[in-house]
Each structure stands twice: as structure tokens, then as C-alpha cells.
């Protein structure tokens, strides 16, 4: 999970490193720790460390994790040659390691040699049939080949064994959303909320899925989850505030003409959200304030 302070630190270090202010190793460590995908920059700065024998020897054993990080970044940037050299260095140091074997498989994947990659992974799985990383690579490979149905199948099999892996649940949810299978995606997000109840982004994603499914009941639930996102983020999440506004409007439309007591509390929360949004825009982006104000007026959330 990336916190606000950590994100600010990452951005600060990134601009420092880009402007030649040093701290490349610190930056690479932070990227690794936060799981950020900044392949281009990792490749550039990682290679500058690896090509400098003095800087490289200063890292000690960390040198090999840097080789791994750079190899993956190079694959992501389609720099197959660089990746190949890094992996060759690693396999010379650690012959027969599964972790290096995974990198070799990924190299084949990047070259789109699917059959070879499949064979490489199958060979690794013979030795350790429950290796999580390799099983996840198989899912990714199915996804890369444009076969989400197979990816879903693999992931479901994987999750039967490793039920507590929230990254896998998130991936499954995202694939289901891509396939427009919202009911299944909602189930995955429920699982994620159970697993990590204080991560607001899962509440937000769950609410988004419910809102997309539509229907009065779903939208009422979605509104509750948008509200809990607002609660968990201290009102700093713009998307959740917009979600509250839209839910309020849709519920108003759906219950129009029905009994009046249901309507009593709902416009209240969405107009509060609208006010919070306007305040936020006033502070952070005053030039767009008039646009938002007209939109809110059209939705009859503010007068």
C-alpha cells in the first residue's frame, strides 16, 4: 500500500534523481518497496549503478537484487538484450535457482515465445508444484495472450489454494471487470474488503462495481460504500465524493413518485458531498470551479 507521505517522497526522490542530484539507489529501493511500476527510470538509473564498478561493489549482496530489478524493468521496456545479460549474470551466480528460472521464463514471455515459456514454467513447477510466483506467471501469460477466460480459470484454481492472497483477488476482480462480469467482480471486492477492511480503495472499487450494475438496491449499497470511502480517506477522495453525488441523483430518480419517507435523508448526503467537492475545487483547481458548479446545479444538488 502506498501512503500519501510515501508517494510524496517517491516523487521528490524521482525528480532529484532525474536532475542528477544523486540518491539513485535509495530511489530504486523505494520503487521496489512500494511496488511502483517505473520501468523506464529503473532501467536508466539501475544501469548507471550497474555500469559503475565502484558503485556496484558498494552495494554488496544487494547487487543481485538490483540485477533482478533491472532485468524485469528491461523486459518491461522491451530491451531484451539488456535483460538477457542481467539474467545471464544472475544464472552464473545462482545456477539452478527457481527465482532465476522465473526470470528466464519471463524473458521468453517478452519475446512472445509462449510455448517455450510454458515449457519452462512447467519444468519449474515439476520441482515445486506450489510455487506462487510461477503459478501467477501462468495467469499473466494467459492474460498476455489475450485469453482472459483462461486467466480466470487459472486464478480461480490458484485462489482455491492460496485464499489469503489479496493481490490475486484484486487481479481476478480487475479481469472480471474487464470482462464485464460485475457480479463476480463484486464478490472479489467483498473478499478484499473482508481481508483488508481499512483500505479505502477497495471500498471505492466495490462501490463502482455496484453502481455500474445498477438497480435501486445496488445503488443504495454503493452509496454506503462511497460514504465509507469518504470516511476512511477523511473526505480527500474526489471520486468517492462524485460517487455520492451521482448515487443521490440516481436514487432520487428511481424513487420518484414512490413513498416519500425513503427520500427524506438521501438528498442531504449528496448535497453535502457536492458542497465538499466545490470546496475542494476552490482550493485546488479554481479554474474548473465554474464547470463543476454548473454541473451540480443541473443535477439539482446545489441551488
Amino acid at each position: 500500500m502506498v501512503g500519501a507521505a510515501e508517494e510524496a517522497r517517491l516523487n521528490r526522490l524521482e525528480s532529484q534523481v532525474d536532475n542528477g542530484g544523486g540518491g539513485a539507489w535509495e530511489y530504486l529501493c523505494l520503487v521496489q518497496k512500494l511496488g511502483a511500476r517505473r520501468s523506464e527510470k529503473v532501467l536508466k538509473h539501475g544501469l548507471s549503478i550497474l555500469n559503475d564498478p565502484r558503485a556496484r561493489s558498494r552495494l554488496g549482496v544487494e547487487e543481485w537484487t538490483l540485477y533482478e530489478q533491472v532485468a524485469i524493468a528491461a523486459l518491461d521496456c522491451q530491451q531484451i538484450d539488456v535483460a538477457k545479460e542481467c539474467i545471464a549474470a544472475l544464472s552464473m551466480k545462482f545456477p539452478g535457482s527457481i527465482r532465476v528460472g522465473k526470470l528466464e521464463g519471463m524473458l521468453l514471455e517478452a519475446k512472445e515465445a509462449w510455448a517455450d515459456a510454458e515449457k519452462a514454467y512447467a519444468r519449474l513447477l515439476e520441482d515445486s508444484p506450489l510455487d506462487q510466483v510461477i503459478l501467477k506467471r501462468k495467469v499473466a501469460m494467459a492474460k498476455a495472450q489475450g485469453n482472459p477466460a483462461a486467466a480466470v480459470e487459472y486464478l480461480n484454481k490458484y485462489l482455491e489454494i492460496f485464499m489469503a492472497d489479496h493481490d490475486a483477488w484484486r487481479e481476478l476482480a480487475e479481469i472480471y471487470v474487464n470482462l464485464q462480469m460485475y457480479k463476480q467482480a463484486a464478490y472479489c471486492y467483498e473478499e478484499l474488503i473482508l481481508c483488508q477492511p481499512i483500505v479505502p480503495l477497495y471500498h471505492l472499487a466495490y462501490a463502482d462495481v455496484l453502481y455500474t450494475m445498477g438497480g435501486l438496491e445496488n445503488i443504495q449499497t454503493a452509496k454506503k460504500y462511497y460514504a465509507s470511502t469518504v470516511n476512511l480517506t477523511g473526505g480527500k477522495n474526489t471520486r468517492a465524493l462524485y460517487g455520492l453525488c451521482l448515487c443521490g441523483v440516481v436514487i432520487g430518480q428511481l424513487t420518484k413518485g414512490r413513498n416519500k419517507d425513503e427520500k427524506a435523508e438521501s438528498p442531504d448526503m449528496s448535497s453535502l458531498a457536492a458542497k465538499a467537492l466545490l470546496k475542494d475545487y476552490k482550493e485546488r483547481s479554481p479554474e474548473k470551479l465554474s464547470l463543476v458548479t454548473t454541473m451540480m446545479k443541473n443535477m439539482k444538488l446545489i441551488s
Binding site: 500500500m1 500519501a4 511496488g35 511502483a36 495467469v139 480527500k236
Partner: peptide, 11 residues
């Protein structure tokens, strides 16, 4: 405050 989730690098 959690602002973003890590990119799912395993996949």
C-alpha cells in the same frame, strides 16, 4: 492515508 495500491507486479 492510502493513496494508491502497488502495481500488481506479479501479474
Amino acid at each position: 492515508r492510502v493513496v494508491s495500491l502497488p502495481a500488481n507486479l506479479d501479474f
